[in-house]
């Protein structure tokens, strides 16, 4: 029993450590053009529910992990191998970790945050008793 508890505690620590926590800074913006290598939904982004994380490989072969939005907000996703353009803010410790501001693909743009990083899907809790409306994001022709 003790062994099991220890194992669970270690697993929790590993899982907690595996979470990526960084914030969107308007001073650390980047634009990446690359092919979609992987799209996953996980809880690796700091204190978030299931987040869409896109792994992108640019022409120079560098891989970026792009933290997009909660899974319910970003439902129409690009296909694997598709070339997309992303603008976002990278982590102060690791330039390959990016919080996306928008994604551009096939002449359409998917807005995720405003220029200061405020998420367009809203936050995770009620404000002064008002329930937030949850509406999915959309691709817009640009």
């Amino acid at each position: 029993m003790r062994k099991l508890l220890t194992l669970l505690f270690v697993a929790f620590l590993v899982a907690a450590e595996g979470r990526v926590c960084f914030f969107f800074s308007p001073e650390r913006k980047i634009e990446i053009v690359g092919k979609v290598v992987k799209i996953e939904e996980n809880q690796s982004f700091c204190r978030s529910d299931y987040f869409v994380v896109i792994t992108l490989k640019d022409r120079r072969g560098r891989e970026f992990k792009v933290y997009v939005s909660p899974a319910w907000f970003f439902t129409e996703r690009p296909g694997l191998g598709e070339e997309i353009k992303i603008k976002g803010s990278y982590s102060q410790n690791n330039r390959t970790l990016v919080i996306a501001e928008w994604i551009y693909s096939r002449g359409e743009k998917f807005l995720l945050r405003d220029s200061r990083g405020f998420p367009l899907w809203g936050g995770r809790k009620r404000r002064f008793g008002k329930e937030r409306r949850r509406s999915k994001g959309k691709w817009v022709k640009r």
Binding site: C21, F23, F24, C46, R47, S48, P119, R124
Partner: peptide, 10 residues
């Protein structure tokens, strides 16, 4: 840091 709005820390 932590934020109600994922990654938003102005």
């Amino acid at each position: 840091w932590d934020s109600v709005y994922s990654g938003y820390l102005p």
